[in-house]
């Protein structure tokens, strides 16, 4: 078993449910080939740095898993056949240093998932500190927020 990471970009033209189903199918490909998914990290809909198949945006999803190295060719073949996938990037974590980094990334992704789950449960509780600590939150929120002018407009209005 070797540790891997897969970033997949799903077509933005699909509906939200179709995207979720597509992501499920992608994870299914990994598990059916003997992979054990450690965690997943949803980066969400993002603007692509360059258009792929005339799409300007894409749904980014990262999967951390471990699988026997021989199964990777089959997994990548299945990904290549999948027409809902714009792009996938497979990264191998082989050396001791890389494996340590992989553990760190998995932990980070788990923490992020727990945070977003908590935010979903109590939306009101998380929004109150966000309003008081504007400068800190803005820094953290900047990569997620698509349009910067909107984020800058809020402190000026207060």
């Amino acid at each position: 078993m070797r540790k891997y990471e897969n970033l997949v970009i799903v077509k933005p033209t699909l509906t939200a449910e179709e995207i979720q189903a597509s992501v499920k199918a992608i994870e299914e490909v990994i598990t059916s080939n003997g992979g054990e998914i450690a965690t997943t990290d949803t980066m969400g809909m993002r603007k692509l740095a360059y258009p792929i198949e005339k799409n300007e945006r894409g749904y980014f999803h990262v999967i951390y898993y471990s699988v026997a190295p021989a199964a990777i060719t089959e997994i990548e073949r299945r990904f290549r056949l999948n027409e809902e996938l714009l792009r996938f990037v497979t990264i191998k974590y082989d050396t001791n240093r890389e494996i340590k980094a992989w553990d760190g990334l998995v932990e980070k992704a788990n923490k992020k998932a727990a945070m977003s789950a908590k935010a979903a449960e109590t939306p009101a509780a998380t929004e109150v500190p966000a309003a008081t600590e504007t400068p800190v939150v803005e820094e953290a929120a900047a990569p997620v927020v698509e349009e910067v002018p909107v984020a800058e407009a809020t402190p000026a209005a207060e």
Binding site: L7, I9, L48, A49, Y50, R87, V89
Partner: peptide, 11 residues
């Protein structure tokens, strides 16, 4: 180069 392949950074 990885980030370019993943469309996070332009070529």
């Amino acid at each position: 180069k990885r980030a370019r392949a993943a469309a996070l950074v332009p070529y």
